[in-house]
Design a protein around this nucleic acid. Structure first.
Length: 394
RNA sequence: CGGGGUAUAGUGUAACGGUAGCACGAGUCUUUUGGGAAGAUUUAGUCUCGGUUCAAAUCCGAGUACCCCGACCA
């Protein structure tokens, strides 16, 4: 894509009173804040979301899960069955007869019940990538905590409890594959959290960052983390290896998985051979992941996108009067299968370089009169300081 | 949802109850072209509703929005 055609341009001014992710994403025009906790995703930001989605889809499909898309607009009745209609998370609209979905157990359980009648149908799982609405009265921290946000939610159904256990463990692994591709693997920890009334533990996936709103207690021995709720029950020791030296860190919860057992299959009377179906749910905040990536992957100059997340892999920048040669190089790079953002604008060099660092694509290629004199182009990785010259015959 | 604060142009700010100004940004043109360059020129604002007053950005009331602390959450 030619940068001259990018409608939303980077901003020079810093945004005050905002988190790092909001400042950088707004400044580089990946997002635009519409109101507190609600953002528009502009072309570059939208590309990032799509990239995160495709990483997730790949992993979900490996789990054998099938993708569906449920409505965001829900009727009151199923929520009354589970006694969750009155929870504060629900945005109620149209004389409070409809609600905007903040999770989808109430919709997916009746859906699954209609489809699965015999033991042969099990186990199975369904997932969706969809906009959720959650009536947080205090949205903050940029895209880390929206009242409207993009989420992947996966629901699994099992006749046997041990099948639920097996699937649950598979999801854990699959989530770590996702975090790895998102460049968050070193900072993201499996965290023990309360399972609510129906199981001892659930698991959160917490990414360590100063922007995080949670505190986790990290066991350096077995890299398990424990959240605030659990730490008191466990008397300040690691439940796994009994280590008492725990480090407190600020973190953001990017995912949460629960064994729900029959909590939601019971109210909807979803049974196979007279026993309630076992269920698990597995959430992953996609827009929140985007924010977490920015919080982790940036320097004082701007964002440093991990390869698989970046909207483009190459930022081609022309300096000076080399339009013909640069246009040609743009074509050549694309033909080799690269996704290229081509800064073809007639702008001051400094501005182009500063903007490139801000936007944060993994590889920067410069073509200028200077490099062409040596029959070269200049290649620099965003996360490295060294500049390499590479032979290039125009 | 509890507590506190703020509201003037895209952003940041100024104006005693008496002419809404400055800087940055953005647009156009020219020059410049290896780290947000220079000149010329243009653009745009008092959150909403009500009250007090000869006169309100300024004082008062209500609403709304935003920010901060807490609670909750992907």
């Amino acid at each position: 894509m030619k940068q001259s055609q990018l409608i939303f341009k980077t901003k020079k001014e810093n945004i005050l009173d905002e988190s790092i992710n909001a400042n950088l994403l707004i400044k580089a025009s990946f997002v635009k804040k519409l109101m507190s906790g609600v953002y528009s995703y502009l072309p570059l930001g939208n590309m990032v979301l799509r990239n995160i989605e495709s990483i997730i889809r790949e992993e979900m499909n490996k789990l054998g899960s099938q993708e569906i898309l449920m409505p965001a607009l829900h009727p009151k009745e199923p929520w009354e069955k589970t006694k969750r209609w009155e929870l504060k998370e629900m945005f109620k609209i149209r004389d409070k007869e409809y609600g905007l979905g903040w999770t989808h157990e109430e919709i997916v359980v009746p859906l699954a019940k209609e489809a699965a009648f015999s033991k042969k149908d099990f186990p199975f799982s369904l997932y969706q990538i969809q906009t959720k609405f959650r009536n947080e009265l205090r949205a903050k921290s940029g895209v880390l905590r929206g009242i409207e946000f993009l989420m992947k939610d996966l629901y699994s159904f099992h006749v046997l409890e041990k099948d639920l256990d097996v699937f649950y463990e598979k999801v854990k692994k699959s989530y770590f594959n996702i975090f790895k591709k998102c460049g968050l693997e070193k900072k993201t920890f499996l965290t023990l959290a309360s399972g609510g009334t129906f199981s001892k533990y659930s698991h959160e996936f917490q990414t360590i960052t100063e922007a995080g709103e949670d505190q986790i207690y990290l066991c350096e021995k077995c890299s398990l983390a424990i959240n605030k709720e659990i730490i008191k029950q466990e008397k300040y020791q690691c439940p796994k290896c009994k280590n008492k030296k725990l480090t407190v860190k600020k973190a953001i919860e990017v995912g949460n998985i629960f064994k729900l057992y029959d909590k939601y299959t019971k109210p909807f009377n979803f049974k196979i051979s007279d026993k309630y179906v076992f269920m698990g749910c597995y959430g992953l905040g996609i827009s929140r992941l985007m924010g977490a990536i920015v919080e982790i992957c940036h320097d004082e100059k701007g964002i440093i996108w991990p390869e698989q997340i970046s909207p483009f892999n190459i930022h081609l920048i022309s300096i000076g009067k080399v339009k013909k040669q640069a246009d040609k190089l743009y074509q050549v790079l694309q033909k080799k299968g690269n996704k290229v953002l081509y800064d073809d604008r007639d702008k001051n060099t400094g501005e182009k370089l500063v903007e490139a660092d801000l936007i944060g694509l993994p590889i920067r290629i410069i073509i200028s009169e200077k490099t062409l004199q040596k029959n070269c182009i200049e290649i620099k990785k965003r996360d490295e300081k060294t500049i390499k010259l590479q032979k290039y015959n125009r």
